[in-house]
Simulated assay, not measured.
Amino acid sequence: MPIQRFTRVYGIQDAKIAPLTADPAGGTPTYGALIDVPGIKTLEISGDVEVKKLRGDNVQLASNSSISNVQVSITHAKMSLDVLAAIIGGTVTDSGTTPAQKATWDLTADTANFPPFKLEGVTPPNGVDLVGGDVHVVLHKLTASSFPDLGFAEEDYRIASFTADADPLQANGKWISVVLNETAAAIA
């Protein structure tokens, strides 16, 4: 018997992104290594629907709706140089030796290319109706739609965030996948 197709959704435990390295039409998309989004706080998905109405004879004769935009908004507690490089470009370099090591993210005119990436978030185990289960949400092809919120806050923590727009994959047309697992699974 299949599992139920509805659930409560409580919390978010983990999120990872992966650079989209190939998206061949009719083929198989490929992704780079997973990058942790540290201190994930929220993953919010919204969308826009465009509605066209056909009128005639002083009445509405028909209407047609289509998705015109899917957007994701992420907040996370810790700034990550690797996430910045993956979502807007740039390079991260490590230098120095202990006790003077450095990790530097540089964004230049040549490297600010807003590359496509995948995002996957997951609830904690038991964050769903199925005991021991979880929910994964996958956005298969995203592109940052604004510059990430960065900086400092006086006498407080600064929460990092970014937004991105989704596009369907050319390989298989997927935009979003929501997977309800009977047994919790790590992001892979």
Rank of each mutant, 00 (worst) to 15 (best):
V131R: 10
V178Y: 10
D156Y: 11
P125Q: 12
D156W: 11
L43S: 05
V137E: 10
E120C: 13
V179H: 13
A62M: 05
L130I: 15
N64M: 10
K16T: 07
I87W: 01
N113M: 06
K141I: 00
Y157S: 08
Q170R: 09
N64I: 09
T21S: 08
G127N: 05
S65G: 11
T97W: 13
I67T: 14
I88T: 10
T93F: 02
M79S: 03
L61W: 07
L54N: 13
G132H: 11
A184D: 15
M79A: 10
I40F: 12
V51G: 01
S63G: 02
S80G: 14
M79I: 15
D48M: 11
S80D: 06
A171D: 09
L139T: 08
T183K: 13
Y10R: 07
G27E: 11
S95W: 04
Q4L: 04
G56V: 12
E155W: 04
R8L: 13
Q170D: 15
G133E: 08
D110R: 04
A18T: 01
Y10G: 05
D106V: 07
F6V: 09
G173K: 00
S80N: 06
I176N: 09
N69R: 10
V122Y: 06
H140D: 02
L107T: 00
K78Q: 15
T123F: 05
A85I: 01
N69Q: 11
A100R: 09
T42W: 14
T30H: 11
P148M: 06
Q170A: 09
E44L: 01
P24H: 08
S66I: 02
P99M: 12
N58Q: 14
D14V: 04
G89A: 06
W175T: 12
Q101V: 07
V178T: 11
L142E: 09
N69A: 05
N172L: 05
Y157T: 06
N64Y: 13
R5C: 11
A77V: 05
D134S: 15
V138E: 04
G39L: 10
Q60W: 03
R55K: 14
E182C: 03
L20M: 07
Q170F: 10
